[in-house]
């Protein structure tokens, strides 16, 4: 049954809520930009991940401002912030916490759970690949279930909860690549690139003066949760959804949608979590750009970040120096042609 009728023609500016959403997001970007110079795409994708409640894996060489970005986001969003420097001797209890024996003045002794740094809104897992797989896996339940179980007791994490992990692509000796299950729990994998000359000039001017600009709080945790709910309400057309799903299937070498590079170099394609990530991120992007529907452009923009860590290459790809980006570029081109 078609639902048509007279629509009161009014500018969307006259709808306070929609206007407020757009203004808030613009403010967030502007505040982050005060402390973190340039790389607007990276910032936008970080905001998108936050609006979706997704975790982000940042990859970049040291000194590019990964930690600064995460800390700034924490400041802007008025969220509690914790940082864990992952090292090989880091233990799971160092992350999630442990039961400690406490003695009361009355002489009684009891175990009391001492919360670890994971109990925060924004967790920066710095150089996450330097910890052992056992320690890395301590984050699995926290990232997926938003809770921690210790000694049979389950402790919910504060909402919203984000894990922003960084890893260094160089100095790979003594590192432990993240297990596939944990990598799949990251919504995005983002690359932090070196700033260009203009950005670098701005960075120098800002950080070497007598005053360092600080980002102020713009968005509360509750407001962020509301935004997360709003994102899920964004309508998605069937043909756009199908395009996203085709894109995910195209990363599987044994499907009819697979591209030639995928068939040759991909060992394992993206999981359904990848499709979820694409659609949700596309909705957030649409809202951030002042639209109330998901477009094909949204899908194409967020797909690489959502798929690049979910596509596993085979040995032939390494031998031929084929990167995931090459394969995803072909997949995107194939989807655009259709």
């Amino acid at each position: 049954m078609d639902n048509y009728g007279k629509v009161k023609r009014m500018a969307l500016d006259s709808v306070p809520e929609s206007v407020e959403v757009r203004r808030t997001l613009d403010k967030v970007r502007a505040e982050i930009g005060k402390a973190f110079v340039g790389q607007t795409d990276l910032v936008d994708q970080m905001i998108i991940a936050l609006m979706c409640g997704g975790h982000v894996l940042l990859e970049g060489v040291p000194g590019l401002g990964k930690t600064l970005l995460v800390r700034t986001i924490g400041q802007v969003l008025e969220l509690s912030f914790s940082r864990i420097q992952f090292t090989p001797d880091l233990m799971p209890a160092d992350i999630i916490g442990t039961n400690v024996l406490l003695s009361t003045p009355d002489g009684e002794r009891s175990f009391q759970f001492q919360k670890g740094p994971v109990f925060t809104h924004l967790l920066l897992a710095d150089e996450i690949n330097r910890a052992t797989p056992k320690t890395q896996s301590a984050l699995l339940e926290a990232m997926q279930e938003m809770r921690v179980t210790i000694s049979g007791n389950t402790y919910p994490l504060p909402q919203p909860f984000f894990v922003l992990a960084t890893q260094n692509p160089i100095e790979m000796e003594g590192t432990y690549p993240l297990p596939e299950a944990q990598v799949d729990r990251f919504m995005f994998k983002l690359y932090v690139h070196s700033p260009n000359l203009e950005d670098l000039r701005t960075i120098i001017n800002r950080t070497t003066g007598d005053t360092v600009p600080e980002a102020g709080p713009v968005l509360s945790a509750n407001r962020l949760l509301e935004l997360q709910m709003l994102v899920r309400e964004v309508p998605l057309a069937a043909h756009v959804r199908d395009a996203a799903l085709e894109m995910v299937l195209a990363t599987h070498p044994d499907t009819s949608q697979a591209t030639p590079l995928v068939r040759q170099y991909v060992r394992l394609g993206a999981s359904p979590r990848g499709a979820q990530s694409i659609v949700l991120a596309a909705k957030a992007r649409a809202l951030m750009h002042g639209r109330f529907n998901v477009s094909m452009e949204d899908i194409r923009e967020v797909a690489p970040a959502a798929l690049r860590h979910r596509v596993l290459l085979n040995f032939a790809a390494e031998a031929d120096e084929i990167r995931v980006e090459n394969i995803l570029a072909e997949v995107m081109a194939s989807a655009a042609a259709e």
Binding site: M1, D2, N3, P235, A237, R291, N293, V294, M296
Partner: peptide, 14 residues
């Protein structure tokens, strides 16, 4: 950017 198509499709949904 798929505005009209999405609106038409969702208008037909009950």
């Amino acid at each position: 950017q798929d505005r009209i198509a999405t609106a038409v499709e969702h208008a037909t949904l009950d």
